[in-house]
């Protein structure tokens, strides 16, 4: 993601469109819009839950995740997070919005 885009925020789909099931350290999420079921690790699941609550910029998202216990710092690489959001977008789980 380029610098000019970094001002944009990510917004997850409305939370009533998702069903969650935590099975140990794997999380399944069913999206009633697309009908797809996704397998997420706990970090990806946390990210998705956060952006479903409210739109967040990547910087804000990184800061929120850093405060969480149990998430290793080296996994919070900004470019990996951006790649994850792009995958979520391709799956129709998040969209890019202007931050309010």
């Amino acid at each position: 993601m380029s610098e000019s885009e970094s001002g944009l925020a990510w917004q997850g789909v409305s939370s009533d469109a998702l069903c969650w099931l935590e099975l140990g350290d794997e999380v399944l999420v069913y999206h009633s819009g697309s009908g797809d079921t996704h397998l997420l690790d706990t970090l990806s699941a946390s990210v998705l839950r956060l952006v479903c609550d409210r739109p967040l910029t990547l910087a804000r998202l990184t800061a929120l995740l850093a405060d969480r216990p149990g998430i290793p710092r080296d996994e919070l690489d900004g470019s990996e997070l951006a790649a994850l959001m792009k995958r979520f977008r391709r799956l129709g789980l998040v969209d890019v919005v202007k931050p309010c």
Partner: peptide, 29 residues
Amino acid sequence: VTPARTMLELIEHAFNYSVLGERGFNLLG
């Protein structure tokens, strides 16, 4: 096989998971 991966494989083998939607997800869970 972990429960989550078992579930994903079961979905692959389902004829009408896409029709049952949330009901199917909760059931297989």
